[in-house]
Amino acid sequence: MSSEQHVLSREKNDILHPPGGILIWILIFLEVITFMIALSVFAYMRSRNAAMFAESQAMLNPLLGTVNTIVLLSSGYFMAEAVRKLRAGLLKLSVRYTLVTILLGLVFIAIKSFEYSQKIEHGIGLEYNTFFTFYWLLTGFHLIHVSVGIVILVFIYFSLRKGRYDARDHEDVETGAAFWHMCDLIWMLLFPMLYLIN
């Protein structure tokens, strides 16, 4: 058994201890379900006004969206690696990967801000039409989560550097990582619904 599997398997079959802790998983479910409800309302509104939604969607920039998706997914990869390295006792690498995660998160925010500024330049605000109301609210809430996630990761980064966590004791890191991955999960719902499908 690899060290990773060993550490993880002690949690196996314990309903009260999903990886990262039960509280974060309750939060993840609530968040994911909330976004799903919002997206279902969105889909319903679209079915009632397909033409306007298609027109508005065409005003989005799928290239920027795709690039941003890749950035976010890559940051998720580095976060997962940071946790894996920590479990294997490779603290230095873990610290470095956490930093890369944070930086990629900032890149995501930067690209998103650029996208937002373009929209605002064209006078497309929250009340432009129903599509854009959803666009702003959903991506806005997501962006808030990403920002909160970065703050959490910054805390974790400094604690890691101070040597507060090691291969055995690092539940906080797992919890923070789970929060970060949750931002990915939410984006996996938002991106196709807003940018791609019609």
């Binding site: 609530l30 909330t34 409800i37 919002a38 309302v41 929250l126 009340e127 109301t133 959803f134 702003w136 609210l137």
Partner: peptide
């Protein structure tokens, strides 16, 4: 107030009972 409150209010207040 602007009508996006219909969406925000509808979704978040529906979660309160949970």
């Amino acid at each position: 107030v602007p009508k996006y409150w219909l969406i925000v209010g509808g979704i978040f207040s529906s979660l309160e009972p949970l």
